[in-house]
Simulated assay, not measured.
Amino acid sequence: MKYLLLLLVLGLVLWKLLGRARGSGAAEGRQAPTRRAGAAAPEAMVACAHCGLHLPAADAVLDGSHIYCSPAHRALGPRAPHA
């Protein structure tokens, strides 16, 4: 039993020493993760002029300079400012 405990302690010491030796070289060569070639770029988000809902620009309904989330909100027009 004492040999098993001694072997366990020796294994832990070696594991720590090897981990520390690997860790010192890896920290210098670390770089920020890069985007995969197939990953899509983030899409621009816009706010509805009537309700304020944020949605992807590709899904928005345009009416002149105003952006809406649906044709129903386009028909209602921009939200009136609160007094």
Rank of each mutant, 00 (worst) to 15 (best):
Y3T: 10
Y3Q: 13
Y3S: 10
L4G: 07
L4N: 05
L5V: 02
L5T: 00
L5I: 02
L6M: 08
L6G: 06
L7S: 06
L7G: 05
L7R: 03
L8Y: 04
L8T: 04
L8E: 03
V9D: 00
V9E: 00
V9G: 00
L10I: 01
L10Y: 00
G11V: 00
L12R: 08
V13D: 00
L14R: 09
L14G: 15
L14D: 04
L14N: 10
L14Y: 02
W15N: 05
W15D: 02
K16T: 01
K16R: 14
K16F: 03
L17R: 10
L18Y: 05
G19F: 00
G19E: 01
A21S: 11
R22T: 10
R22Y: 12
G23L: 14
G23P: 04
G25Y: 09
A26R: 12
A26K: 14
A26P: 01
A26S: 12
A26Y: 05
A27K: 12
E28Q: 11
G29K: 15
G29A: 15
R30M: 12
Q31M: 14
Q31P: 05
Q31T: 14
Q31V: 14
A32G: 09
A32E: 11
P33G: 13
P33T: 09
T34C: 11
R35C: 11
R36G: 15
A37M: 09
A37C: 07
G38V: 13
A39I: 04
A41K: 08
A41R: 12
A41P: 07
P42R: 13
P42I: 05
P42K: 10
E43Q: 11
A44C: 06
A44H: 09
A44T: 12
M45W: 04
V46R: 07
V46M: 06
A47Y: 00
A47L: 03
A47P: 00
C48G: 04
C48Y: 01
A49V: 01
A49S: 08
A49G: 04
H50P: 05
H50C: 07
C51I: 01
G52D: 01
G52R: 06
G52C: 04
L53M: 10
L53D: 00
H54W: 07
H54A: 07
L55D: 00
L55V: 03
P56T: 01
P56S: 04
P56Y: 02
A57Y: 02
A58T: 03
A58K: 06
D59F: 04
A60M: 03
V61C: 08
L62I: 03
L62G: 04
D63I: 02
S65K: 15
H66E: 11
I67Q: 11
Y68N: 09
Y68Q: 13
Y68A: 10
Y68G: 12
C69F: 06
C69E: 06
C69P: 13
S70V: 08
P71L: 12
P71E: 15
P71F: 05
P71Y: 07
A72F: 14
H73S: 11
A75G: 09
P78T: 12
P78R: 15
P78G: 15
P78S: 14
R79V: 10
R79A: 15
R79K: 15
R79Y: 12
A80I: 08
A80H: 09
A80P: 11
A80G: 10
P81K: 15
P81S: 14
P81C: 08
H82K: 14
A83R: 12
